[in-house]
Design a protein around this nucleic acid. Structure first.
Lengths: 199, 199, 199, 199
DNA sequence: TATGAATGAGGGTTCATTCAT
DNA sequence: GATGAATGAACCCTCATTCAT
């Protein structure tokens, strides 16, 4: 007797991942209301009814997708940040990462934001977003400690500027305006910190 | 025979306006998919079927609402801007106006943005938004001419920062974070221009 | 201009009757849970969705059917009773009528009884049934007044006997046991009143 | 090697009983359509799929429940009857037993009756019911033999009266009308036999 | 032109039954 | 045999759109 190639637990986890991936794709493509559970099942390679063994409702499924998305995003960002030690570089690379994800997943991020307002969501999900946003605060605090941060605005303004400008830029880029991503990040970061004296 | 109080044309225009107003309210309240044409008709004081005499489909109706919305917004902004002559003040007042409208109509603006991507929109509507965005460019150009604008970034970055930061801030404000609107506008505008030498 | 063959009101009433008739048939044939609204619509000659213009839910539709059924039954019984003046004959004819209806509509009557217990019905419907049952009391009271009624049991026992025996008999008849309806009614009525001294 | 505490056969029988008991409870509580096989399995302490090793379909399971129910009922009634020797008392105690069971299991008895008509039942089950009904005939025959039975109606009318009145009464009692069970049985039995001369 | 009753396609969800382990 | 995850058909209800009046 050889061990099975996949344990039962692994298969369940694979399937859950497949459902989440399929759901994310379909939600992105059609929005929440436009998404059909049947298509999610089909893309995940399972029967429609099986989806409901993993998530009680379409809304719960959306919750799951959001949770996984923010968790992945935070992990990815942390990896990027940890690859560098200089806070200024970290900020720039975080901007690059964030802009890239915004462009890749704009519809989805937007959709997520929408749901927070339309539906009667439990605010549980907010925690994921805040955890991600805190990455900025961590880096920027180190910039402040090293004296390279602009000091003429409270950190929350800086944070809003950072995320807001990147988000808005991602939208103009997606709308086809020729504009390089590196131009955007360089300029945005340039407004927030002054690395000249250092690097 | 006296002249009718309202010409036929006027009545039609009144009705069109009523439909657009009702539709905007309902779209804001329930989103595009959640909006029901019957409710729009009811709020406009007409029969459900009559809506279809003015707009071929629900989507067309949304188009109409968007067009009217951006036109109104542009008119309103222009009024505000024209009330002042100093470009720095104009910029600040424009920021105040924009943030206010974002907060008032966030759902709708968001919805509008969403539709541009989800549906098979003709890009006709883009023009409305661009016309609004150009208001910023006009003001900011005058700031540059008066030497009060920051020069270390191209205007498109400044524009993205301006709209992006305001939009992001409106979202955090709407999410209940205590933050005054005037704080936000002052800080955002302060990052873009330097009025100290002047005013 | 000639008057239309059917006024709008008449058409609506016709349609409502058609829906009720179709619904009753389908409920009888398949039970409440087994009944499909689509089939009800089809049998009524209308679209499935149209049913919902007349009744908010399948349950409401059942309510309507029950109400109409008991109303019809009461009217029919009263007609029969009014055709005779002698209370003894009235009782017998009422028994004949009731047994006949039980046999004709057994499934439905049973179904109706079922719903009263399973569902969280408002007891509003009870009123219809009681109104029908009171017909017995009226007649039997006249029998008592004329001295032909058995007096050794309170009227509620007599009523239970009357309806209970007829219902049980209808069931055995429906199950194919050879037994004439007139035998049943004669015997049941014979146990309750004594017409010998009179007729 | 000691003998197992339970033979395989015994375990199977235990399980079958558990399934039937669970199924009966669930059918009573929710009706046939409303009953869920999963819940039956859960209440029986076995997996959902295991139910299908014992009964091919949900309908078959209902058949089994009915068979067991009528068998139990007949056994219980016979026990009661055998506790007395006087036929009049036997009849009264049988009435008491039957009314009690009707009240206890009304929904289920009704459900059973319903199924006989709705579904495409084989009439196999009829035999159980008839066996139970024959208990009445046995007792009543002895009443006749002892000269205490009313003779003015054939036995099948008496039987219909007996069961019909009790059933109808059980329904009125269940509907909350104040009426004691002993009142009902005394009156019903009093109409069928005349024990005065004897007891 | 205006109406609103009628249409019917569409979709989330349930659950009896099957089947791989 | 026992399990319980997987299946997918079935159905109530909604609502954008049409059309007879």
């Amino acid at each position: 007797m050889t061990a099975p190639l996949k344990t039962r637990r692994e298969k369940v986890e694979d399937r859950e991942r497949a459902i989440l991936a399929a759901a994310r794709d379909v939600f992105i493509q059609h929005g929440f209301d436009g998404a059909r559970v049947a298509e999610i099942g089909r893309r995940a390679g399972i029967a429609e009814g099986t989806v409901y063994l993993y998530y009680r409702t379409k809304s719960d499924l959306m919750e799951g997708v959001l949770g996984a998305f923010w968790a992945d995003l935070t992990d990815g960002a942390r990896d990027v940040i940890n690859s560098f030690s200089d806070p200024g570089v970290q900020l720039e690379q975080f901007a690059v990462f964030h802009l890239q994800k915004l462009i890749e997943h704009y519809t989805f991020l937007d959709l997520a934001a929408k749901l927070r307002r339309w539906r009667d969501r439990k605010p549980a999900r907010r925690v994921d977003i805040r955890r991600y946003a805190l990455l900025f605060d961590e880096i920027f605090q180190r910039c402040i400690d090293q004296g390279i941060a602009r000091r003429d605005a409270p950190i929350w303004v800086t944070r809003d500027l950072f995320f807001g400008a990147l988000e808005y830029s991602s939208r103009t880029i997606l709308q086809g305006e020729a504009r390089s991503q590196s131009d955007v990040t360089a300029n945005v970061v340039g407004l927030l910190i002054d690395r000249d004296g250092r690097i």
